[in-house]
Amino acid sequence: MPKPKIVDFENELAQILKYWAIHTLDKPYGGFFGKIDHNNHVYTKAPKGSVLNARILWSFSAAYNHNQNPEYLELAKRSFDYIRNYFIDGIYGGVFWTVDHLGLPLDAKKQVYALAFNIYGLTEYHRACGDVLALALAKELFLLIEKHSFDPEKGGYLEAFSRNWKEQADLRLSEKDFNEKKTMNTHLHILEAYTNLYRIWPDEILATQIHALIDNFLVHIINPKTNRLILFMDENWQPKSTIVSYGHDIEASWLLLEAAEVLGDEAKISSVKTVSVAMARAVASGLDADGSMYYEFEPDQKHLIKERHWWVQAEAMVGFLNAWQLTGEKVFFNQFTHVWNFTKQHIISTDKGEWVWGLNEDYTLMAGEDKAGLWKCPYHNSRAMLEVINRLKKGVLNH
């Protein structure tokens, strides 16, 4: 089994961002196209998603912070300008879920998940160029989340609101989600966003909320018996789902530790390390013999969904490498290597560019999925490349 080389990940990072730089710029209407299919056919009038644009902003900003390529900063600025001009709700605050191809509000609901991703992108952009407006917008979104979404009685954050921050019946991110008031996914990405905000704005209230978010995971969201995430909960933290999401489990295992380390709380770092490694051990049950990681398991139906999604492979690489750094156990490095080799062979689209959405159990391409779209983005895979590069340079950490 060939040992991964840092240069391989540097090259793949460049290839991912090259695709987005060449294929996704919407020159007639500004910003980036809302949808491109696997064959690189552009849907010029597709809706544009705030989450996709925030992820593009994060990706090019983070890449610029890595190697100071001026083209990356230019594309990050393109994304920032589009978000500022079209996605920010100038009347009620927050961000629209989608706008049309002209930039007019389409779905104006306030999905807290989307606000979190915009904080994530804005803060990384501020780290890249020091833009004071980007930081101001990130702080504004943080305050809106705390005002409208934070549950002062039970802790945690509520999912979604109408445009003017009133309760609404449908709280779901997508049709496959459960319609519950609290979800793992939104909490994970608020944590991710707040962690990045704290790097540039070490505010005491923000620190308190990051501490609380980590505790939410340790107490309510991670099942202590299985070391797996509970995906959906009611407002009282009562579990409403038994579905196992392998990609989210392994993603949370390293994002939780990142948050604790940014806070600098040694006691919390120690406790999270233990949980991170336990989650990585548990999630290994989702690995196939070919090195790939499956999508989900539904224990009630004993149904293993053997699709291999692009983002799950990306997060698996980082999570297993993180576990190797923490323990020095070769099994984790081997798991990372196997996932990377599978990704190179089956997920990276060498002929059409970028990564395919995923493969079915029989290795056929998952039909009808995007190359770029509301959910298909450069964030998971570019971030994985950056994380792997930095972690391989450090090797096993002396913790």
Rank of each mutant, 00 (worst) to 15 (best):
residue 268 K to T: 15
residue 227 N to Q: 04
residue 64 Y to I: 01
residue 247 G to W: 04
residue 217 F to Q: 06
residue 307 E to V: 04
residue 112 V to N: 04
residue 12 E to C: 09
residue 276 S to N: 06
residue 168 Q to M: 15
residue 117 F to Y: 15
residue 354 E to A: 07
residue 349 S to M: 05
residue 358 G to I: 11
residue 283 V to T: 15
residue 200 I to E: 01
residue 254 W to P: 01
residue 287 L to H: 13
residue 51 V to K: 01
residue 334 N to R: 08
residue 19 Y to S: 05
residue 95 V to D: 02
residue 367 A to N: 10
residue 55 R to Y: 00
residue 207 A to F: 12
residue 295 Y to N: 15
residue 97 W to T: 04
residue 250 I to G: 04
residue 362 D to E: 06
residue 185 N to P: 09
residue 384 A to G: 12
residue 270 S to H: 08
residue 139 K to E: 11
residue 144 L to R: 08
residue 4 P to K: 06
residue 270 S to V: 03
residue 314 A to T: 10
residue 219 V to W: 05
residue 142 F to W: 11
residue 269 I to E: 03
residue 371 K to A: 09
residue 341 N to C: 09
residue 397 L to W: 13
residue 262 V to P: 02
residue 139 K to M: 06
residue 173 L to M: 12
residue 50 S to E: 09
residue 384 A to C: 13
residue 37 D to F: 02
residue 192 E to M: 13
residue 114 A to Q: 03
residue 83 I to L: 13
residue 55 R to M: 05
residue 280 A to G: 07
residue 382 S to R: 02
residue 289 A to P: 04
residue 112 V to C: 14
residue 330 K to L: 12
residue 298 E to Q: 08
residue 266 E to G: 05
residue 105 P to H: 11
residue 280 A to P: 07
residue 32 F to P: 00
residue 43 Y to C: 11
residue 320 F to E: 02
residue 256 L to K: 02
residue 361 E to A: 13
residue 251 E to H: 12
residue 139 K to G: 07
residue 84 R to F: 13
residue 125 Y to R: 04
residue 269 I to K: 08
residue 384 A to Y: 06
residue 5 K to N: 10
residue 231 L to D: 05
residue 9 F to G: 00
residue 220 H to W: 10
residue 235 E to M: 00
residue 18 K to F: 12
residue 353 G to S: 10
residue 317 M to N: 03
residue 245 S to W: 08
residue 349 S to I: 03
residue 344 K to V: 15
residue 113 Y to C: 00
residue 219 V to A: 09
residue 12 E to W: 02
residue 105 P to C: 13
residue 57 L to H: 06
residue 385 M to V: 07
residue 338 H to M: 15
residue 87 F to D: 01
residue 144 L to P: 02
residue 274 T to L: 15
residue 333 F to C: 09
residue 345 Q to G: 11
residue 14 A to Q: 08
residue 369 E to G: 00
residue 368 G to R: 00
residue 17 L to W: 00
residue 189 H to E: 06
residue 38 H to R: 14
residue 194 Y to N: 03
residue 140 E to V: 06
residue 111 Q to H: 14
residue 313 Q to K: 06
residue 32 F to N: 03
residue 236 N to A: 15
residue 90 G to T: 09
residue 389 I to T: 08
residue 100 D to Y: 05
residue 54 A to C: 14
residue 338 H to C: 15
residue 6 I to S: 07
residue 102 L to T: 14
residue 380 H to Q: 05
residue 179 N to H: 06
residue 51 V to Y: 03
residue 139 K to H: 05
residue 358 G to Y: 06
residue 353 G to H: 08
residue 172 R to L: 00
residue 120 Y to V: 08
residue 262 V to R: 09
residue 185 N to W: 02
residue 215 D to G: 08
residue 157 Y to E: 01
residue 235 E to W: 00
residue 227 N to H: 12
residue 369 E to W: 07
residue 285 S to D: 14
residue 203 D to W: 07
residue 141 L to Q: 12
residue 210 I to Y: 03
residue 169 A to E: 08
residue 382 S to P: 06
residue 114 A to S: 13
residue 54 A to V: 09
residue 57 L to E: 01
residue 180 E to Q: 15
residue 49 G to D: 13
residue 208 T to Y: 12
residue 74 E to H: 14
